[in-house]
Structure formats: structure tokens, C-alpha cells
Simulated scan of single mutants.
Amino acid sequence: MSAMTVPPGAPAPPPAPGRRDAEATKAAILKAARHFLARQAHGHITLKSVAERAGVSPPLVLKYFGSKDALFARVMSFEDDAATLLDAPLDTLGPHMVRHVLESQRDRGADPVLRIVFAPLHGAHGDVLRANFRTQVTERLADRLTGPDAGLRAELAVAALLGLGVMYGIARGQGVRHSAIDDLVERYAPAVQIHLTPGRPGG
């Protein structure tokens, strides 16, 4: 057996240092692009400013993403964020979503859905942001719901999450930011869950 062969059933080796560095760099660039997307119109954001905030060179941004439009197409997509946000059984999805929003804000400074609030800044690109949000977040959630008014209930559940994200990340409410996440989940999750499983325990 060669030194590079992994026996059946053995865990995969960790990624090579170069791959880890590349993934960390791409994550930093995406985080920087999100920062500007929440503060400036799309037309005013430059690759140079994104690169400087991410601590890399503009050619490296182009290496990983190809162009400004390709970079912001990634930032304006909710696909990956929605997959994580909705990754829980329906009966416990409300608490999961509330916890995920709070931990994302606290630990990474990146709310999974809050950038939809800034769609009016971006003209036609804002229309893309809205369309992605509708298909990748609210409609995806609605498809999981049973019973009447699934689309409305999905929108109301997500609206509750957006309100929490605004209070935590934009208004910077002191009560919210200085409370334990477990306590906030216990208090707030029922307001989300009631739209997901109305009439059930926790809903």
C-alpha cells in the first residue's frame, strides 16, 4: 500500500495547508464583499476596496472569483446560507433558525439572510437579491410546510428572523446583545415556530 492510499473506512486526511489557506482567503473575500453590500450601492463598490478589507490583492480576488459581477453573484445568492438555516426537522426548526441567526452574528459577524434588507441600495442588482431570497429562502421553506397558507407562514417566520437580525446586528440592541443565546432562543423561537407548525407543541 502506498503512503498516499487511505484504507477503506479510514477518515479522510485533513485538507492540505494550501487548500485551507485558499478556503480561508475566499471566505475573507466573501465576508468583505458582504460588508460593502450592506453599506454601499453595488455600482460604488470596487474590487480594490473589497481586496483591501479582505487583506489580499485585487488580482487574487479575480483569481478566485473571475470578476466583480461573479463575486457579487455569489454574495447575492442565499443558496448555501439557506441550506444551513433550514437544516433541522420541522418540529424544531424555529429554535434552530433563531440559534443559527444569533450565533452567525455573534461568531462571524455575518447574518445568513439580513442582506436582503439592503436590496433597495442596489437598483437592478437589488431585484436579483430579492428574487434569490424569494426562491432560495422563503419558497424553499414554504415547500417544507404542511397545511394552509404555507407561503404566507414561511414569509412570516422569516420576517421574525429578520427582525431579530436587525435588532442584533443593525440596531445593536443592548438587551439582545448581552443576553445568553440559550435564553434568547427560549424566548424568541416560539414566535417563529408558531408559523411553521401551528397548533403543535412549540408552535
Rank of each mutant, 00 (worst) to 15 (best):
I45L: 07
R200P: 00
K48I: 10
H178F: 05
P112F: 15
L62H: 04
D87K: 05
H122G: 03
V128F: 13
A157P: 08
M4H: 11
A88E: 04
P190C: 14
S179Y: 07
H44A: 14
D91Q: 15
I45N: 03
E186A: 15
S77M: 08
D87F: 05
T46L: 04
L47E: 13
P95S: 08
H35T: 06
F78N: 03
V6A: 09
G163P: 00
R140H: 02
I170K: 01
R134Y: 11
A28H: 06
S67N: 09
H178Y: 07
V158C: 11
S57Q: 12
A82Y: 02
G18C: 04
F65Q: 01
S2E: 08
R99C: 06
A41S: 15
T146N: 10
V98I: 14
K68I: 02
N132Q: 15
A70F: 05
D111H: 14
L196W: 02
T135N: 06
A32T: 05
V117W: 13
E139W: 10
R108K: 04
A12H: 15
A171F: 05
E186L: 10
V101M: 13
P17F: 11
L85V: 13
G109E: 09
K48C: 02
D87G: 06
R106V: 04
G109A: 07
D183C: 00
R187I: 00
P8D: 14
L47K: 08
D143M: 13
A160H: 07
D143C: 10
G109V: 09
Q105K: 14
G9H: 10
L86H: 03
L85R: 13
L85N: 13
P148I: 10
R106S: 05
